[in-house]
Amino acid sequence: MKLVAANAVHPDRAAVVVTHDSRVFHFADVIAHMDDGRIVKTERNGKREIQS
């Protein structure tokens, strides 16, 4: 996940990760929560961990 967060995120690219592993949620800028086929909540993570 560190490699993806450090290298995949780019001003000309949208990176989307599908996971249910809450241990990596801190890498996200935005978290869209799904349940039963719907997006039930979308939250912006102001404390995204940026790896170099």
């Binding site: 967060a5 990760v17 599908v18 949620f25 996200a28 800028d29 929560h33 799904m34 086929g37």
Partner: peptide, 22 residues
């Protein structure tokens, strides 16, 4: 009926329990 957006320059996670449609 999913409404979803992902923006350039951002890392967007789609999360939820197994089988929810991710």
């Amino acid at each position: 009926g999913v409404d979803f957006e992902a923006r350039l320059g951002e890392l967007t996670f789609i999360v939820g329990p197994s089988g929810c449609g991710k």
